[in-house]
């Protein structure tokens, strides 16, 4: 049994953390257990469900399928890093406004995937939204209101919504 430890420096939500990890430590457990950022969830063990989705250097990835050592030097954004100055990110707001969540377990990963989509495509169609969320499983909502939430957020982020 190998008991090697490796020091990594990973910037999470703008703060650089130096930490010692076992090579086998998955990024999701590094975030959850070493940094206490428990908003990133684990829902499966076959890289299917997407509950663990975070942004790594600006791209949505599954943090259950990355070793923390691979993220050494990377910039990570988690669900906890989205809201700024206590204001919700428009996607977070959209999920609340459109009832895009029930139990909330898939929600952080779902939101991180949606944010990633809207960064690249500010005006997605329903089909594009569904396609962008193909790596995230929700068992509560039937996805109907998740799609609505992302559309709502897209509108806000484009700034062309009519204020109500």
């Amino acid at each position: 049994m190998n008991d090697e430890r490796i020091t990594v420096g990973i910037t999470v939500n703008g703060v650089t953390h130096r930490a010692v990890v076992e090579p086998r430590t998955l990024l999701v457990y590094f975030l959850r257990e070493q940094l206490g950022l428990t908003g990133t969830h684990v829902g499966c063990d076959t890289s299917q469900c997407g509950a663990c989705t975070v942004h790594l250097n600006g791209r949505a990835v599954k943090s259950c399928t990355i070793f923390a050592v691979q993220a050494d030097g990377a910039e990570i954004t988690t669900i906890e890093g989205l809201a700024r100055d206590s204001a919700l990110h428009p996607v977070q707001e959209g999920f609340r406004e459109k009832h895009g969540l029930q139990c909330g377990y898939c929600t952080p990963g779902m939101i991180m995937s949606a944010v990633h989509l809207l960064q690249a495509n500010p005006r997605p169609t329903d089909a594009e939204i569904k396609h962008a969320l193909e790596g995230n499983i929700c068992r509560c909502t039937g996805y109907v209101n998740i799609v609505e939430a992302v559309k709502w957020a897209a509108e806000r982020m484009r700034g062309d919504h009519v204020s109500r």
């Binding site: 206490g36 428990t38 969830h41 669900i79 809201a83 952080p108």
Partner: peptide, 21 residues
């Protein structure tokens, strides 16, 4: 009515069993 539960859940501040150490 929008849900009272959501602000915590959409910000990753929910607390599921595995979140407790």
């Amino acid at each position: 009515i929008r849900r009272v539960e959501d602000p915590l859940l959409v910000t990753g501040k929910g607390c599921y069993v595995d979140d407790i150490q």
